[in-house]
Design a protein around this nucleic acid. Structure first.
Lengths: 208, 208, 208, 208
DNA sequence: CATGAATGAGTCTTCATTCAT
DNA sequence: AATGAATGAAGACTCATTCAT
């Protein structure tokens, strides 16, 4: 492995360990010793690869956001040509086990919880949110235009869908006994089926 | 003020200061000195009224949960007799300025972020969630029965509504520029109008 | 009860509670709250009857020393006329249950442990020690003079006896399973019997 | 110095500083800041080498006990073959300046004072006491057997000697003006000379 | 007389960060 | 590149003392 590769490898190692620690101990209780120990490395290492603890946390949030964005963007790319199919693929991606597992959701909520008081977190969350909204909004717009749903507001539907997904993540986090990914996806489809009945009919209502 | 009153008064004072501090500095950065200072009291006071910092935080979460529950329960009680009117009153309550302001939402997310690693938080969140779900589920069931929406699943609708509300809170927290309480409420009504068109027609779509 | 009586009564109450707390929790862990609580009184009371915590502790040591002195002085007074009988009565007093119980011994050792760094404790311990030595030394001297033990050193015997008694207290404190007051007394008599065989013969060796 | 050596060296450094601080300020007034400062190190260091303050105190007591045991055991080993010579060597060791100085005696009394309320201290004191008693008891037994002192009780003599030594330590602590190590040793020998006249004759009485 | 709320100094402990090896 | 010893700032918590009631 080359020098630069090692550097990148270690950074990833530490970011993974950070996610694991926040999920296990919570944001407030996560120390650099936990992170380094979790990665099987020595105490001092973190300040060797990251300027500060805060820098590691920002890198972790970035990592999480990028990973998420890659997943839904490639889901859209792989999906069929219709906007409904693409929207459905996004839902599928949002509840993919690699994304919507309790560990990562816990970390997302940890960052959201701190976002108001840490401008950098807020900026990153906003950026991700904007990209996601642009995508879902565009798809809703296409469905409205193509399906003749003239009286519907694409913005509101896209926001509603996004909100519902985030809220369903919370259910997966807080109430895992009554909740699973399939139910979550079907709940999203119920919403889309209700607003776009012709497009999602056989996806939402019938699946129960 | 009598002795016993003072005790309760101080506890409330400290809980309010805790909420203010978490909203301002974040959960991880909130110290007892901040809380005591914010309440205009001396350092040592917190451990006089609460067994530990953790006990104060639990009391804060309880306070938040009770306040919220009182608001939506009284909204239901005050609303018109129809289940749709009651459901609409709940939405109204969920975005009442006393509840859905960035300060309190930030605190909710802080607790949710820590919930996975602190069983007591999880328990309290679950309890609140269960009570809320029971109420909205029962109303959805009534609408379905009365309105002849036989093919709809009350559980899924209630869960979807609840999720959407939580997700909209996140939007208010993260993206306050593009978002306000009115838009949020209308987004919820769009969902209900879509699934129960006869009941919410004039509440949801027309308000934009 | 008159004012001054109450005052004295409360002081005694608090001193007893101090002894109980030091015996139970140790010197270092004894707080004024423990003391006040142990006496069934409120927190602030101690600083009402004593200038400071340190003043309470000094009063406690004084109380202990006075109580002890009264016991051996009255034992001497009550004993038969011979110096040997008086010496024996002192031993009896030193291991009287009211004096030589683990609770009080623990407190004595606590004060001795702190004596080097607190001049007032040292002074009080010295004063008691001097009075006790004067008494036992005088009795040893009389036995030597009357019994013709001309080659013996009264000082050394008195010091040795005193030391042995203190050391036996330590055994009662540390090693209560292998030790009891009777054994302790017989050990002292073994010493006296050995140095003054004619005076203590039937008291020491035969009792085993 | 190698890494592992440093670790042990620092621990010893901190234990020495603890002894010095207890001797100077007393047990109750000894803080970790005193200890660290006394060792010329920074505040945080103690919790780096010891799990807690209590762990440091236990290690200190252990150190003291081990040091003491090594001294009397090697005194026995070096002494002449007769049990009387060995017993005498133990007395010599008990009042060796490295052991019986006011500083260390103060610390011993501090621990004895706390022993009743701290089981771990009690256990350690008991263990040391048992080992010491086993040794002196065995020597007394040999003297009795060899010297024909059939009517004497080895247990009582050993306990008496041990008690006298501890009590003489207290005199060195409390009453250093009237007391010194030589006087203390002679007091012990007076006792042994009295019970075993043939064995200690020229050691005890003549030395005054 | 007595209470107990309130204060604030002080203590143990944790932990991010630095740096010699 | 990596370690882990060391630092020192900061936080939770305790507690002697004060004082209004």
């Amino acid at each position: 492995m080359r020098r630069t590769d090692i550097k990148e490898f270690r950074r990833q190692q530490l970011i993974e360990a950070t996610i694991a620690s926040i999920a296990k101990r919570g944001f407030a209780e996560t120390t650099l010793a936990d992170v380094a120990g979790g990665a099987g490395l020595s105490h001092g290492i973190v300040n060797f690869y990251f300027k500060s603890k805060e820098a590691l946390l920002v890198a972790t949030l970035k990592h999480l956001a990028e990973e998420y964005e890659v997943v839904w963007r490639s889901a859209v790319a792989r999906a069929g040509p219709s906007p409904a199919a693409k929207l459905d693929a996004i839902i599928e991606a949002d509840f993919h086990p690699a994304i919507a597992n309790r560990k990562k959701i816990a970390v997302w909520f940890a960052f959201w919880g701190e976002a108001r008081s840490r401008p950098e977190y807020l900026r990153l969350c906003n950026k991700l949110d904007a990209a996601y909204f642009e995508q879902t909004h565009s798809l809703c717009r296409q469905i409205i235009d193509q399906g003749g749903y003239d009286e519907l507001d694409a913005t509101r539907i896209a926001r509603g869908l996004n909100a519902m997904i985030d809220g369903l993540w919370l259910d997966l986090l807080i109430n895992p006994r009554d909740f699973d990914r399939e139910t979550a996806k079907q709940t999203c489809r119920l919403f889309l089926d209700s607003v776009f009945p012709a497009e999602f009919a056989d996806r939402g209502r019938s699946a129960a």
